[in-house]
Amino acid sequence: MSRARRSLDWGFPRWRSYGASREAATVRLCDRHGCEEPGDCPAPKAPNSPDRWYFCQRHAAEYNSKWDYFEGLDKAEKEARTKAERAESAGYAEAQHYGWMGSGDGSRSADEMRALDLLGLESDADFPAVKKAYRNRAKEVHPDVKPGDAEAAKQFQALQVAYEVLRQAEERREWKG
């Protein structure tokens, strides 16, 4: 008489894990030539087309960085569409924890990008470079250096705001990571 093998679910079938079968799971690879990462980020092949590329996160960010959402629109249409998009997506502004991590891969917000432009830095600049650029630019337009110059005071305030935006973003990244 052979003994039955005891199951690991202690008689409760619902305790069995999902996907406990032993077959190999099919993983779709990134559509970028030569990439061996899983391709789990769909991207449209063309506007208004149901066909999709499937990229890994790194290549999806690269693909989306070159995508011009406002291509073919004049300035007034761009502004109207931007305003409508902001009003529609205002509820998502607080959900920044859904962003990708790492510099240059889509993790920078529009405010951070404007702040980096104001400081004259690239989008993949690290925080020590931000701090150095802020200090150098602030020394040039500080109110103590240029007393009575209203334009220099406005530039100094803009630099302070830009630095604060980037400092808070860096703190959020450190807190997440």
Results as ranks from 00 to 15, higher is better:
102 G>A: 09
168 Q>Y: 07
121 L>Y: 00
27 V>T: 15
33 H>L: 11
146 K>Y: 12
128 P>Q: 03
59 H>A: 10
147 P>N: 02
54 Y>I: 07
90 A>W: 05
140 E>L: 06
72 G>F: 00
17 S>W: 11
90 A>Q: 15
47 P>D: 14
6 R>E: 13
138 A>N: 01
16 R>C: 13
112 E>S: 10
100 W>S: 13
169 A>V: 07
132 K>L: 14
32 R>C: 09
52 R>S: 08
158 A>S: 12
17 S>H: 12
124 D>S: 15
58 R>P: 00
41 C>L: 04
112 E>M: 08
34 G>L: 06
140 E>T: 11
64 N>V: 01
79 E>I: 01
177 G>R: 14
132 K>V: 08
56 C>F: 06
81 R>Y: 12
168 Q>H: 07
98 Y>N: 13
22 R>Y: 08
56 C>W: 09
105 D>H: 04
119 L>T: 02
3 R>I: 05
128 P>L: 03
57 Q>R: 15
166 L>W: 03
111 D>R: 08
133 A>H: 04
135 R>V: 11
62 E>W: 05
83 K>A: 13
48 N>F: 10
76 A>W: 04
18 Y>R: 04
96 Q>A: 09
156 F>E: 01
132 K>N: 13
100 W>Q: 11
167 R>W: 12
162 A>T: 04
107 S>M: 05
74 D>Q: 10
82 T>A: 10
61 A>H: 08
175 W>Q: 09
132 K>I: 09
